[in-house]
């Protein structure tokens, strides 16, 4: 699928890089033209966007809410104690020194 100026390997790099910085207009036009013509590179771009969305996801599947128990009272206390042990004085200023 080596039409236009760039081949698929080059376009795949450009697609990734375009997610991290802004390209000059002419490069964007050439990349977009290639993506319009090439279904594989177009899929690649969609997949990278799915990866970005999935990595940033904070939701949990409903099933996991139902299946998973809460932290036990003992575990909560253990965690709080570990926090106290780490910083005996919980005052915010004590962490800035």
């Amino acid at each position: 699928m080596s039409h236009w100026m760039f081949n698929c390997k080059e376009v795949s790099m450009m697609v990734s890089e375009s997610m991290d910085r802004k390209f000059p207009l002419h490069r964007r036009i050439l990349m977009t033209a290639h993506l319009f013509m090439c279904r594989y590179c177009n899929r690649f771009k969609k997949q990278l966007l799915i990866l970005r969305k999935a990595a940033g996801l904070e939701d949990i599947h409903e099933e996991d809410f139902g299946r998973s128990p809460s932290l036990s009272k003992e575990t909560r206390e253990r965690i709080k104690q570990a926090m106290r042990d780490l910083f005996p004085d919980p005052d915010l200023d004590s962490l800035n020194t």
Partner: peptide, 8 residues
């Protein structure tokens, strides 16, 4: 050639 060996 820079083409996909196996397309996505």
């Amino acid at each position: 050639e820079g083409d996909w060996r196996v397309g996505p």
